[in-house]
C-alpha cells in the first residue's frame, strides 16, 4: 500500500504538520512518499522520495498550478492514498485532485478503525466510518488527530518537479491578521464567551467573572464575527492560542477550531446547557446550566470569598 503525503510550506517555512502525515501513514502501514512545493533548504525528515517543486519558482499558492504538479507526481508514483491536512490548503486542493482522478475523498479523518477512515459528523457529536468505492482515495486529516511520539528522522531522496501550468486565479498578496490589542497568551485565567451568551448585553456577565477571578475575557468566533467582542480576544485557529491555569468556556460548543486554541489550558471548566456538547471532551468540569443564571451566581460567590 502506498501513500503520497502532501506537506505544506508557507511564508518560507516548512510546516511541522508534515509529521502528522507521517504518523498517519505509519498507523495505516503504508509506504510513503511526499510532495512539497517548498525549498531545498527546509526539507522534511523521513526516509523515502520527496517530490519537490521550488516555491520560489512556482510562486504563492495557485490551485491550478499545484494541482498540475501533484497530478504529474501521482502519475509517476501511483499511490493508493493521497493524504492532505484538513487545512485551508488541503480543503482547497484535495477536491480538485480527487475530481481529476475520479477518486473518492474522505474529509477530516480523525481515526483509522479496522483499516477504514472515521470522520466527525454534526460538530463532532457523532462519528462516521466511511468506505471508498474507488481504487485511489484522497484523504484530509484533522489537525492534531495523528502524531508521532518522536520526530521523524532520515533524509529523503529529492526528485525535482516543475510545471508551466498557469491558472485563472491570480494571487495578489497577503493581509496580516489584525494585530495588537490584548495578548491572552500570558493570561493566567481566561473566561470566554460563546454564542450561548445569546446577546451582546450578556457579554458583561462574562467580563464580570473574568475580573472577579483576576483574569481576562475571551470569545469564540461567532461572538467576534457578530462584533460583540473585538477580534483580538478571539481564541482558536484563526485567533489566539492560549494555555492559562484556568479556562472557563461559557456557552461554547467545542468545535475543533476553538479547541485548537485552548485545549492545552491546565484546568478547563465548561458551562453549557447541552450535556452532550463536544466541549465536554476536554473539560475537567462540565457545569450543565444556563450561563445567564449560573455565571452571576458564581461571580457573587467568588467575590464573597
Amino acid at each position: 500500500m502506498k501513500a503520497l503525503l502532501v506537506a505544506e510550506y508557507r511564508d518560507g517555512q516548512l510546516l511541522g504538520s508534515y509529521q502528522e502525515l507521517i504518523g498517519f501513514a505509519r498507523q495505516l502501514g503504508a509506504d510513503c512518499s511526499m510532495f512539497l512545493v517548498g525549498s531545498g533548504s527546509a526539507l522534511p525528515a523521513f526516509e523515502g522520495t520527496l517530490y519537490l517543486a521550488d516555491a520560489a519558482q512556482v510562486g504563492d499558492y495557485n490551485p491550478d498550478v499545484h494541482k498540475q504538479l501533484l497530478l504529474s507526481v501521482i502519475e509517476q508514483e501511483q499511490p493508493d492514498y493521497i493524504v492532505f491536512l484538513h487545512s485551508s490548503y488541503g480543503w482547497d486542493l484535495a477536491p480538485r485532485v480527487a475530481c481529476s482522478l475520479k477518486a473518492s475523498q474522505i474529509s477530516e479523518v480523525v481515526e483509522i478503525k479496522d483499516g477504514t477512515m472515521v470522520v466527525p459528523v454534526c460538530n463532532a457529536k457523532l462519528r462516521r466510518q466511511v468506505t471508498p468505492n474507488t481504487q485511489v482515495t484522497v484523504l484530509t486529516l484533522q489537525a492534531g488527530a495523528f502524531g508521532l511520539a518522536e520526530p521523524p528522522t532520515g533524509s529523503p531522496e529529492v526528485k525535482e518537479v516543475s510545471t508551466d501550468a498557469v491558472g485563472p486565479i491570480t494571487f495578489t498578496g497577503y493581509e496580516a491578521a489584525e494585530a495588537g490589542g490584548v495578548d491572552l497568551s500570558k493570561s493566567e485565567v481566561i473566561v470566554s464567551a460563546g454564542r450561548g451568551v445569546g446577546k451582546p448585553e450578556n457579554v458583561s456577565i462574562i467580563e464580570d467573572l473574568a475580573s472577579a477571578l483576576g483574569g481576562d475575557y475571551g470569545a469564540s468566533r461567532p461572538v467576534v464575527d457578530s462584533e460583540w467582542v473585538e477580534h483580538n480576544r478571539q481564541v482558536g485557529t484563526t485567533g489566539q492560542t492560549v494555555a492559562p491555569k484556568l479556562y472557563v468556556a461559557c456557552g461554547i460548543s467545542g468545535a475543533i477550531q476553538h479547541l485548537a486554541g485552548m485545549k492545552k489550558s491546565e484546568f478547563i471548566v465548561a458551562v453549557n446547557t447541552d450535556k452532550d456538547a463536544p466541549i465536554g471532551e476536554v473539560a475537567d468540569v462540565l457545569v450543565v446550566a444556563d450561563l445567564k443564571q449560573f455565571i452571576p451566581a458564581l461571580t457573587e460567590k467568588i467575590k464573597g470569598g
Binding site: 463532532a124 462516521r128 466510518q129 468506505t131 471508498p132 468505492n133 450535556k275 465536554g280 476536554v282 457545569v287
Partner: peptide, 20 residues
C-alpha cells in the same frame, strides 16, 4: 464514490466531572 459503513457516538474520554 463512497459510502457510510457506520455512524456512532464517539467513546467518552477525558473522564471530566459533570455537575448538574
Amino acid at each position: 464514490r463512497q459510502q457510510t459503513a457506520a455512524l456512532f457516538f464517539p467513546e467518552k474520554k477525558g473522564g471530566g466531572l459533570v455537575l448538574e
